[in-house]
Design a protein around this nucleic acid. Sequence first.
DNA 1: CTGAAAGCGCTTACAG
DNA 2: CTGAAAGCGCTTACAG
Lengths: 355, 355
Amino acid sequence: MPASPRRATLATVAASAGVSVATVSKVLNGRGDVSPVTRSRVESLLEQHDYVALPQRRRGDAAVLDTIEVELDDDLNAYSTEIIQGAVRAGAEVDAAIVVSIRTDADRAGAWARGLATAGRRALVAVTSELTAEQLTALSRVRLPLVVIDPLNLPQTRGVTSVGSTNFAGGLAATQHLLALGHRRIAYLGGPATAACNQARLHGYRAAMEAAGAAVLPGYVRAGHFHYQDGVTGGAVLFDLPEAPTAIFAGCDDIAFGVLEAARARGLRVPEDLSIVGFDDTQVARMASPPLTTVRQPLREMGGVAVRTALRLAAGERVDSHHVELATELVVRGSTAPAPPEGSPRPPLTRHAVG
Amino acid sequence: MPASPRRATLATVAASAGVSVATVSKVLNGRGDVSPVTRSRVESLLEQHDYVALPQRRRGDAAVLDTIEVELDDDLNAYSTEIIQGAVRAGAEVDAAIVVSIRTDADRAGAWARGLATAGRRALVAVTSELTAEQLTALSRVRLPLVVIDPLNLPQTRGVTSVGSTNFAGGLAATQHLLALGHRRIAYLGGPATAACNQARLHGYRAAMEAAGAAVLPGYVRAGHFHYQDGVTGGAVLFDLPEAPTAIFAGCDDIAFGVLEAARARGLRVPEDLSIVGFDDTQVARMASPPLTTVRQPLREMGGVAVRTALRLAAGERVDSHHVELATELVVRGSTAPAPPEGSPRPPLTRHAVG
DNA sequence: CTGAAAGCGCTTACAG
DNA sequence: CTGAAAGCGCTTACAG
């Protein structure tokens, strides 16, 4: 390792190649008007000198290396991990870098947006976030395109491009699956009552129940925060109902995990005594015991679509649809089974009581 | 939204403020020699014009916005998610951006390193990766500092800064915990035999067994790939041993999840019939049924330390120790219990056979 | 404090 | 093909 000389510049390389700075610049930018001989000599000198360009400046409006900021509204979890994974893969395909950040509300909208632009971001992908009108304005002032993944409320979506999945169809499919297995007492343990995705799943559930003539008994629909603990607590409450459900449709996989644990604590066997369906199909769903039947959201694809759309917006292209919905799909694994026969004996209170 | 005029430059702002470009530049760079009145006028004009600086060039060697690249050797998983989380949080504290990427071996080392430098990265954090001598050379030629998290083999570590955790102590603690519960037939289901972290955990296990005079029976130590499937498969093999273990120490949480599933498939109850200890304490460990006893690796802290160290190296500071090890810690949850009494009846073959 | 001037690293018509 | 020259957006001594 040689002692640190100054970083090589175009002038350095030009001198050692015996050409002008202009010529080196042309080689660097892949222009056609350089002889092959000169080009290859300059290229090898560039390499020998470990030439590193200044952080790329734009020519016109195009950047040499695109950078997209993916902003989360909270700590990373299994859900956002899948989205990031998809974004990173999609970025790699088009040579765009993905910056991951977690939203802090400290900054004023103007400074926040200008900061993103100054840092050279080409676009912003916001996951699950609620952007204020101020923030939207600030972004548009610095010409930063925005794509929202799974927007919290759809009305906000006016003028904002967003990516989601077919939550209603997913809720419908999950519930129909349970109905087809003979369940009638099916409960829904969901996320925030105000979140658009949760409402759509809930409506899917209600639609399926209604179509099948199955009653949604009092207490069968509960809201939460899409957290594991909601499943533990909510599951326990449901088990205590006079007419306890034989199946639970959870608004996300984390909730389903909580229900699994609530069932275990109560000595209920899954799927023999209780069927559970999750939502998302994050990596852990297949690692549950039993492996979780769940509604797959194509989260990686959603991350990828968001990045590609953001890049197209940044390039000034018009995007024809302002809300893309990717298809959900029911994945049947081991946590669902036919309903226990009506009037079958209630399961023992705790497993330990059995042994 | 006004029709897109050209982006504001220093000259634009200077003209509208009635000062020279030099003065605007000084305001932008927070220099002291500007009168408060001028400064605030210029600042407000800068804002009015939505001035966005060119992608920051370096002054001397310092960049205005630091960017660290965190490179993974594979798709995101629960383990790397925790590290990224820690890196993003640590970056936010010092106003550094975190780019997440997944290594592809397509690029030649030189082009790869130069690409990182050209993109303006200040340092590279490599997770679990094995860097070739060529890549190390290429990085040093473009003066890109490197920090490796959980390096695959320690010898490589010569001249490379790395961050890990006390794997030996963790393996020891996990095994001692099981021994203290009365287990003697304890197996180890690990990761790649060549991985340094796996070796350390294995040695911790062996040390504890030896100290307690407990025999490591033939077939009790298995290697794998730190994957869920290794737990499913390896668990099944262990259960078939003439002297099946009463406890399994898994090399990571994913393997432990696999063992949990193998046990369920075999009708073994956890922790009554079989105790399981994992390693990592990723977010899902507490979501297992039963919640997983595991050795906590401070993955977020490791990500944070790596970022801070990388930044210090980039700033030209000397780092006194070239391998930092953070402490692991045993977290006892529900997947471990006292060993079943010696000679207790073997559990039924499958749970379904019971019902 | 302020700004004219020199300079930096780079790109781009344009003349040869 | 090549390069002198003009230009761009910015920073930094330095003179006032």
